[in-house]
C-alpha cells in the first residue's frame, strides 16, 4: 500500500509505503513500513521505492567517474579533492597504466598541485578510503576547458534519461562535456559564447532540476542564445 503519489515531495520520516516494497536510496524500512530519509521526490516503480534527493553531498561509489583536483602528493601518488567528505588516492601506476620504478622516475612530472584529473573510482573500502584510477581513454590530467561545480544530487538531471540532456547540451552548445558524479563538469569548445551559454544552462539545470520539462527549456534557451550569436 502506498501513502504518497509518484513524484510527490516527501520529508524525512514521512511514511511512503507499507508491505513488500523494495527500498533503495533516500528511504529506509522499519518493520513493514517504508519511510523517507531525505527531502526529495518519491520515485515509485512497481514495488520499488526510492527518494530522489534535492540536496546532499557526494559519497564516492565504485565505478563512478569523478573530476578531482590534486591537493597533495605522496611517495607513490597523489591525493585528490573530490568535492566530497572523502579525498581520493591515485597511484602513479593507476594513472600511467604501467609499472613505475619510483627510484628512477620522478613522479612530479606527471601531476602537480591544482591539476584537474578525470578519474574512475576503482574501489571504496568500509572506512571510505577511495582508490582512483585514470586508465580509460579520456581520463587523466585535464588540459584547458572550463569547470563548473554543481550540487552532485543534480548530476542525474544533467545527464538526462539515456543521456538526452547531455546530448542536447553537446549538440546545440557545440562543445564536449565530461560529467563527474561528484558534481564537477568539464566543458571544452571552440566558441566562447556557446561555452558560456552551456554554463548558464547547467546552472539553470541545478536551479530547476525538480521541475519537469527541463530538457525542452534548456534546448529553447540554448537555441535562443545561438541564434543571437549568429547575427
Amino acid at each position: 500500500m502506498l501513502y504518497v503519489q509518484n513524484r510527490e515531495m516527501v520529508v524525512p520520516g514521512q511514511l511512503i509505503a507499507e508491505d513488500g516494497y523494495r527500498v533503495h536510496e533516500g528511504a529506509f524500512r522499519e518493520g513493514k513500513f517504508v519511510y523517507a530519509s531525505v527531502v526529495g521526490l518519491a520515485d515509485l516503480r512497481e514495488r520499488e521505492v526510492r527518494v530522489i534527493p534535492l540536496q546532499g553531498c557526494y559519497v564516492p561509489k565504485r565505478g563512478d567517474v569523478v573530476v578531482g583536483i590534486v591537493v597533495d602528493s605522496h611517495y607513490s601518488g597523489w591525493i585528490l579533492d573530490l568535492a566530497s567528505p572523502y579525498a581520493g588516492n591515485l597511484f602513479v601506476s593507476d594513472l600511467l597504466r604501467r609499472k613505475v620504478d619510483l627510484v628512477r622516475e620522478d613522479i612530479s612530472q606527471y601531476l602537480s598541485m591544482g591539476d584537474v584529473v578525470v578519474a574512475n573510482v576503482k574501489d571504496v573500502d568500509e572506512r571510505m578510503r577511495v582508490q582512483l584510477e585514470a586508465s580509460e581513454p579520456g581520463m587523466g590530467k585535464v588540459e584547458g576547458g572550463k569547470m563548473v561545480e554543481l550540487s552532485p544530487m543534480k548530476i542525474p538531471r544533467v545527464v538526462g534519461r539515456k543521456g538526452s540532456m547531455l546530448n542536447t547540451l553537446e549538440r546545440i552548445g557545440e562543445c564536449k562535456l565530461k560529467v563527474g558524479q561528484n558534481g564537477r563538469i568539464m566543458i571544452w569548445g571552440r566558441n566562447q559564447q556557446m561555452i558560456n551559454a552551456v554554463v548558464e544552462a547547467l546552472l539553470m539545470i541545478e536551479r530547476e532540476a525538480h521541475i519537469s520539462g527541463l530538457t525542452d527549456r534548456v534546448r529553447q534557451m540554448l537555441e535562443k542564445i545561438k541564434s543571437k550569436g549568429g547575427k
Binding site: 520529508v11 524525512p12 520520516g13 533516500g26 529506509f28 522499519e30 519511510y35 530519509s37 531525505v38 527531502v39 534527493p53 534535492l54 540536496q55 546532499g56 553531498c57 544530487m153
Partner: peptide, 11 residues
C-alpha cells in the same frame, strides 16, 4: 539538517 540533505529517521 533535513535541508542539508542529511539522511534522517525523522525530524
Amino acid at each position: 539538517l533535513a535541508d542539508a540533505g542529511i539522511p534522517m529517521r525523522d525530524l
